[in-house]
């Protein structure tokens, strides 16, 4: 099935596209200030002026969701890119060189991979201290093993193939073989696991902020908004629901894309 006919892929792209535009705009401009408090607007229900309503400090929830989604997107993008680049390099080297280096790398990989990313992120953040940069560092390091594993298996699959062998015979250097022969054939599997990683990063970041270990107030973050809102569920259910929906839609879009890509032969 081609990508153009694949409904999952198209719907996923539309959802992701729309929310990304909103999130990226939210990093630079929001309809209302995300930190300005207002007593009159405390728990104002959704209206035309404030489509998601207002929170316990009278701040516009839509503006805060925009900026929070932007932050979440930035965190997920930077952690996944970091994990992907470093992991792919390590995996390629491990697969290319083989021997004890490969063995050591893969054993460490097995150990880290067995652990749920949220637990490891918690441990990292617990000694790095809470904060946005520390969350990015913790999650980024945690994503290295899963990419290393995929890059390594792609390297092992391609290494024995004739076009790689002939490149070796011609006398190409190892970096040239990796970039010119292996990478163009391996990037699809690496990118499709990047989509899974992106979603894990979104959920882990939201979870850490929910626990109060991620983005620090007064800057908005989706997880922390839900955590604050859970104290005011009766007065303002919309306060919890809209940030939650934002996370779900962000994750749904990307998983539909990866679902679509995985069906392409």
């Amino acid at each position: 099935m081609s990508l153009k006919k694949n409904k999952s892929f198209i719907i996923g792209c539309i959802i992701t596209g729309v929310i990304l535009i909103i999130a990226i705009v939210g990093l630079f401009w929001t309809p209302y200030s995300t930190t300005k408090m207002s007593l009159e607007l405390k728990f104002a229900p959704p209206s035309i002026a404030h489509i998601f309503g207002c929170d316990n400090y009278g701040r516009d929830i839509f503006s805060r969701v925009m900026q929070g989604a932007g932050t979440t997107f930035l965190v997920a993008l930077s952690t996944v890119s970091f994990g992907m680049i470093v992991g792919t390099i390590i995996g390629f080297i491990a697969g290319y060189v083989g021997g004890w280096f490969d063995e050591v790398i893969m054993r460490i990989n097995d150990v880290v991979n067995a652990f749920p990313s949220l637990l490891l992120a918690l441990v990292f953040v617990s000694f790095l201290g809470p904060g946005l940069m520390n969350v990015i560092a913790a999650l980024g390091i945690l994503f290295i093993p899963s990419f290393a594993r995929i890059a390594r298996s792609e390297m092992l699959r391609l290494k024995g193939m004739q076009f790689v062998q002939s490149a070796k015979l011609v006398g190409d250097s190892a970096p040239r073989i990796i970039f010119a022969q292996i990478l163009p054939n391996a990037y699809i599997s690496i990118l499709s696991s990047a989509a899974v990683g992106f979603n894990n990063a979104v959920i882990a970041e939201a979870g850490l902020s929910y626990l109060g270990l991620g983005v620090q107030p007064p800057n908005p973050s989706l997880g922390r908004m839900i955590s604050e809102a859970s104290n005011y569920l009766l007065q303002a259910p919309w306060y919890a629901i809209f940030p939650g929906i934002a996370i779900i839609v962000l994750v749904l879009g990307v998983s539909l894309i990866s679902e679509g890509v995985s069906k392409v032969d």
């Binding site: 939201a206 859970s230 919890a240 996370i247 779900i248 749904l252 998983s255 679902e259």
Partner: peptide, 29 residues
């Protein structure tokens, strides 16, 4: 098939703490 895909994809993406807040709202409050 489409219904199953949509329902499972949607459910997979809900963070468990948000689900917890929703369950609190529905079943406790």
């Amino acid at each position: 098939k489409a219904t199953m895909t949509t329902v499972t994809q949607l459910t997979m993406g809900i963070p468990s703490f948000f689900l917890g807040v929703l369950i609190t709202y529905a079943f406790s409050l």
